[in-house]
């Protein structure tokens, strides 16, 4: 057997492969889900258990490690709370409560921990999410890089939004400008972050967007995801392969800020694989697509755009195709490997 590399945790193709090899393949089917629910038989943003009255109990878990722990636009606490709320939302759930597990390195400043927790509480509070339990541990100095926060999100869904239900003819909508979080974090890590930098993480909970949309258009929404690790490229490729479709998007329509675009170009990064932490991608029925965008605009998501559509796949492969800004076509691959700086 080989060794675990950083690429295995980067949210791309390698991660799917290691999960397949280490977990999915080795579990019998009955262990992968609770009957009538959603489990790791079709890995989605969260899991679901039927409640027996037609509704579902939605649950998600995620560990958050980010370097630096304080970044422009937020910190690891805000990220952990927003991320878990968003994962519940993306399955059509209304987030009700959360649990957290915090592991800190010995010597960590109490002040910083308080600030991180304040940010986390603030997000939960403003979204009506209760923090009903958790765990707290300390590791000896040097055995952990500062802090790791794991959050569990719990919610109730009237009906589930499961990405494999995406159908040819559906439109793909992106709620806001992509790659903001990934670009800001990468810049901060590389020390390219002057005080007046325009780069800023977009981390935020999306309850104010998703709940009204689900209430009004729930049955027309066939897929929903937040493009975190692996970015839009990962989301669309997962959708295409889960639903057995082909997705065609127009590069020109994808919301992207000039500052982020220029920065990516300078460093040889691809905005399609960089993370967003406050953006939703939706697959919706064509007849309501424009209406949904207008509704998103009226909810304050003024950059929302229809970026493409779902088609029957051609041949065996479930591809994602990008119409480039110059009018050519290329395949949008799922992200591979880690990002390293380039020579020229």
């Amino acid at each position: 057997m080989g060794k675990i590399t950083l690429a295995h945790g980067s949210g791309g193709k390698e991660m799917n492969e290691i999960l397949e090899k280490m977990i999915f393949k080795r579990l019998p089917d009955w262990m992968k889900l609770v009957d009538g629910g959603l489990g790791i038989d079709f890995p989605d943003d969260a899991a679901a258990i039927p409640l027996g009255d037609g509704r579902y109990f939605v649950v998600t878990i995620d560990s958050y490690t980010v370097d630096p722990i304080f970044f422009p636009g937020g910190n690891i606490g805000k990220l952990a709370a927003s991320g878990t709320i968003n994962d519940v939302l993306m399955l059509g759930g209304n987030p009700v409560a959360a649990l957290d597990s915090i592991v800190v390195e010995e010597g960590f400043e109490e002040d910083l921990l308080k600030e991180i927790l304040d940010s986390m509480f603030e997000v939960f509070k403003s979204n009506g999410v209760k923090l009903i339990g958790g765990d707290f541990k300390v590791m000896p100095r040097g055995q952990l890089d500062k802090i790791v926060i794991t959050t569990v999100g719990l919610g109730i869904a009237e009906h589930l939004i499961v990405d494999k239900n995406l159908k040819p003819g559906d439109k793909v909508i992106v709620s806001g400008k992509i790659a903001e979080h990934g670009a800001a974090i990468y810049a901060a890590q590389k020390g390219f972050m002057p005080e007046e930098s325009e780069l800023r993480s977009d981390v935020k909970p999306l309850k104010d967007l998703i709940i009204p949309l689900v209430e009004k258009y729930g049955k027309y929404i066939s897929a929903a995801s937040d493009p975190t690790r692996g970015g839009l490229a990962m989301v669309l490729n997962s959708w295409a392969s889960a639903s057995g479709t082909m997705i065609v998007i127009d590069e020109e329509k994808v919301p992207l800020r000039d500052a982020v675009k220029n920065y990516c170009e300078l460093l040889g990064l691809d905005p399609f694989v960089l993370a967003s932490e406050g953006v939703a991608v939706l697959g919706v029925k064509e007849k309501v697509a424009k209406e949904v965008v207008e509704e998103m605009n009226s909810l304050g998501y003024t950059d929302a755009e229809i970026v493409g559509e779902v088609k029957e796949k051609e041949g065996d492969a479930s591809l994602v195709i990008v119409k480039t800004r110059i009018g050519g076509y290329r395949i949008l691959e799922p992200p591979l490997g880690e990002i390293v700086p380039r020579i020229c």
Binding site: V322, K323, T324, R325, I326, G327, G328, Y329, R330, C344
Partner: peptide, 16 residues
């Protein structure tokens, strides 16, 4: 030049 290859592939020029 690798950057020409990047431009060609990234912008989908072969498809044109």
């Amino acid at each position: 030049c690798g950057t020409h290859e990047w431009t060609t592939t990234h912008h989908g020029l072969r498809s044109l």
